[in-house]
Computed example of a mutant assay.
Amino acid sequence: MNKIKQFLKQNASSFSVGGGLSILPIITSSSIVSLAYTYESEILAFPFSYWVMFFIITSITMACALTPTTFIALLTGYFLGWEGLFGVIPSYVIASVICYHLVKWIDQGKFASSLEKYPIATAIINTVHKSPIKIVAFTKVSPILPFALSNLMLAWAKTPLKEFVIGSFIGMLPRTIVSVWVGKSIVEIQDLSNVNSNTIVQLIIGGLIIISIVGLTRVFSKNIQRELEASKQKDHS
């Protein structure tokens, strides 16, 4: 119990950030739909420069978990169609990098250091370092794992930045395409709140979740077993 208390105390700031990054997007979802519905005609008349500004701003707001990534993609699909992919995909990647650096700046490596005494936790972090692109991609492909929370966990694990960016692009691409397609297919903007009731969407989301779980399980199970065996051999020697 004392170890748990000490662990929580050491990482209080990191856990606070994690909680905020998970809750804020949920709170703002309904507000975004309401604003988009109220100003739909004005948004439809946006010139190109306004959309460039929109994607720059959303890169920052998504990184800080002020706007949900899925809703940004849905809105993009609704207002811009497939052309919106050229804005929302770079926006996602930039948001990931901003969030990654923000978490690292706040955490200062304390979380990873606090896990060094736990063999399984150390094995998990080492696995991330050995297969970073696979880990990031399988983490990002799941629609149920909050965007900012996945960035938080990967930054805690000290994932190399280059591999983090590549993995983020690969992992976010399928769910982004699906979200833009769904947004493009919506007739009335208020239907954005009911997209999860669509059977096809539910099947696609379920498929992406399965890919994420199976992929992460396979990568982690193999590497963690190797890490633990290597750790035991070191202890015996």
Rank of each mutant, 00 (worst) to 15 (best):
L35C: 06
L35M: 15
L35N: 11
L35Q: 11
A36F: 14
A36K: 03
A36C: 13
Y37W: 09
Y37Q: 12
Y37M: 09
Y37A: 14
T38G: 00
T38V: 10
T38H: 09
T38Q: 10
T38F: 12
T38R: 10
Y39K: 05
Y39W: 07
Y39E: 04
Y39D: 03
Y39M: 03
Y39G: 01
Y39C: 01
E40R: 03
E40T: 05
E40M: 02
E40K: 05
E40H: 04
S41K: 10
S41W: 01
S41G: 02
S41Q: 13
S41E: 12
E42W: 07
E42A: 11
E42S: 09
I43P: 04
I43A: 04
I43C: 06
I43Q: 06
I43T: 06
I43Y: 07
I43G: 04
I43L: 11
I43D: 03
L44I: 09
L44V: 08
L44S: 14
A45V: 06
A45I: 04
A45H: 10
F46E: 04
F46T: 03
F46K: 04
F46H: 06
P47L: 00
P47I: 00
P47W: 01
F48T: 15
F48M: 14
F48Y: 15
F48Q: 15
S49K: 11
S49V: 12
Y50E: 08
Y50I: 01
Y50A: 13
Y50F: 07
W51D: 12
W51T: 11
W51R: 13
M53I: 13
M53Y: 08
M53C: 12
M53E: 05
M53R: 03
M53H: 03
F54I: 06
F54K: 01
F55K: 01
F55D: 02
F55S: 02
I56C: 09
I56K: 00
I56Y: 00
I56M: 08
I57R: 02
I57Y: 06
I57C: 08
I57D: 02
I57E: 01
I57M: 10
I57G: 02
T58E: 01
T58Q: 04
T58L: 02
T58N: 06
S59A: 13
S59W: 02
S59I: 07
S59D: 05
I60D: 10
I60F: 15
I60Q: 09
I60S: 10
I60Y: 11
I60N: 10
I60A: 13
T61P: 06
T61C: 07
T61R: 03
T61I: 03
M62T: 08
M62Q: 06
A63R: 10
A63Q: 11
A63C: 13
C64A: 15
C64S: 15
C64G: 13
A65E: 05
A65M: 09
A65I: 07
A65P: 07
A65T: 09
A65Q: 07
A65R: 06
A65K: 06
A65F: 07
L66T: 10
L66Y: 09
L66V: 14
L66N: 08
T67E: 03
T67L: 14
T67M: 10
T67R: 00
T67G: 02
T67Q: 03
P68H: 00
P68C: 00
P68L: 00
T69D: 09
T69N: 11
T69A: 15
T69Q: 12
T69L: 14
T69R: 07
